[in-house]
């Protein structure tokens, strides 16, 4: 199951979403998530759902692959939904809306990472947050950390898979038994994974030092440029949010 994690993975493709500038996609994601938490009626629910389905179609990523992305957060969503019901949310419509808000946010985030290379996301963030450098916020460092974190997701999930296989081959019953047993069996995976991650990060830091990272002013090889399609991207995202505000305030 660990190898099925799609979060943070980039998938080669040629859908329309791939052609958008990362800044447009980041802003679009932000506005979409806000829209998800703004709508109040069935109309808003339907619009956000249709909007997501259209985006999915434009990305040309299979719905089955998107569903895989829900696996790691399935229990969190389930837990939140149960809490919602227990804490007096007797209105099933609202529970369904809450459920969709969480699933929609995960789906939309997945769409971003599946159609955008980690480096593009970090470059987009760096550019988008560049105004923070006025207050000496380390924007570039933050963007690099995010980019590296994304890059190492597939490597560490592979490694987790190997650790699980190794522990299973030594008789460990990972993922078997009751929930408490399942939780306990995670420890023999987590510890070696952490040790490995620390070793990797140490070597990565040395390699980056060797390649003169942080030794002076950096230049950027690939310049980000908006195209016509980005204007449509911004317009649609803003329109979606505007409609959701109307949905909340007027309807």
């Amino acid at each position: 199951m660990i190898r099925d994690v799609t979060l943070g993975r980039f998938l080669e493709g040629d859908g329309v979403l791939y052609k958008l500038d990362p800044r447009t996609k980041l802003m679009g994601l932000l506005l979409y998530i806000v829209s998800l938490f703004v709508f109040k009626t069935w109309l808003g629910f339907t619009l956000t759902l249709v909007f997501f389905l259209v985006l999915r179609k434009l990305s040309k990523i299979s719905f089955r692959y998107m569903l895989k992305g829900l696996k790691p957060v399935f229990f969190i969503i389930l837990f939140a939904t149960i809490l919602n019901v227990i804490l007096g949310q007797s209105d099933w419509t609202k529970t369904l809306f809450t459920l969709w808000r969480m699933i929609g946010a995960v789906f939309a985030s997945n769409l971003l990472t599946l159609t955008t290379r980690p480096r593009e996301i970090s470059d987009g963030l760096e550019k988008g947050l560049s105004f923070l450098s006025i207050i000496h916020f380390p924007v570039h460092e933050l963007a690099t950390i995010i980019s590296l974190a994304f890059r190492f997701i597939p490597i560490l999930t592979e490694e987790a898979g190997r650790v699980i296989d190794a522990q299973k081959s030594r008789g460990s019953k990972i993922g078997e038994g009751k929930i408490v047993d399942k939780a306990k069996s995670i420890m023999p995976i987590i510890i070696p994974l952490f040790i490995s991650a620390f070793r990797r990060s140490d070597e990565l830091a040395l390699a980056m030092d060797s390649r003169l990272y942080g030794s002076g002013k950096r230049s950027v090889w690939k310049k980000m440029e908006y195209s016509k399609i980005d204007i449509y991207g911004y317009m649609v995202s803003v329109l979606m949010l505007a409609l959701m505000i109307i949905d909340r305030c007027v309807l």
Partner: peptide
């Protein structure tokens, strides 16, 4: 270094 995976920084 020894492990190429640990020194690759770029996406392409």
């Amino acid at each position: 270094f020894q492990n190429p995976d640990n020194q690759i920084v770029g996406d392409t």
